[in-house]
Design a protein around this nucleic acid. Structure first.
Length: 141
DNA sequence: GCCAACGTTGGC
DNA sequence: GCCAACGTTGGC
């Protein structure tokens, strides 16, 4: 089981809005970067992703689940290669893990969030996932 | 194929 | 609002 991190500017699409969508989930579309696209394509149904608020808040605020694997992005123009997945909110992170808190952890210094700050869909290792869950007060599954 | 110009993302 | 990182575009 792989873990992921997906970014959204809360002004555009927030965790609260995601929660409103409930179990039905919502299309995660609009990704226009090839590295991010490859990550979307590697996602499997049932895998988990941190929901990160970029720009405003700058924190991991929730845990989402991949509800549907990659399919052609409905917001792409015909012939473009972009893909979307469906994502649904699973649980909030009781104590949101801020970017500062992540930077403060030596064990998290290799996270893509820090190394490739512009990548909007990125993998998270098991160790990184577990540590962030612990910092965020997420109960063990 | 190289590289300068430009646009976008996202932290500060 | 600025700027660094980085991807894309277009002239050559």
């Amino acid at each position: 089981m792989a873990y992921w991190l997906i970014k959204s500017e809360p002004d555009a699409w927030s965790w609260d809005q995601q929660v409103q969508k409930g179990a039905a989930g919502e299309t995660w579309s609009g990704v226009r970067n090839h590295t991010a696209k490859l990550n979307l394509m590697a996602m499997k149904r049932g895998e988990r992703a941190f929901f990160y608020h970029s720009n405003v808040g700058k924190a991991i605020v929730g845990i989402a689940e991949i509800a549907r694997e990659a399919y052609p992005d409905p917001s792409a123009r015909p012939g473009e290669p972009w893909v979307a997945v469906d994502v649904r909110a699973l649980a909030p992170v009781p104590k949101p893990v801020t970017l500062d808190a992540i930077k403060a952890q030596a064990r998290l210094k290799d996270m893509a969030l820090l190394r490739q700050s512009r990548l909007s869909v990125q993998p998270v290792s098991d160790a990184q996932w577990n540590l962030i869950c612990r910092i965020g007060g997420v109960a063990a599954p």
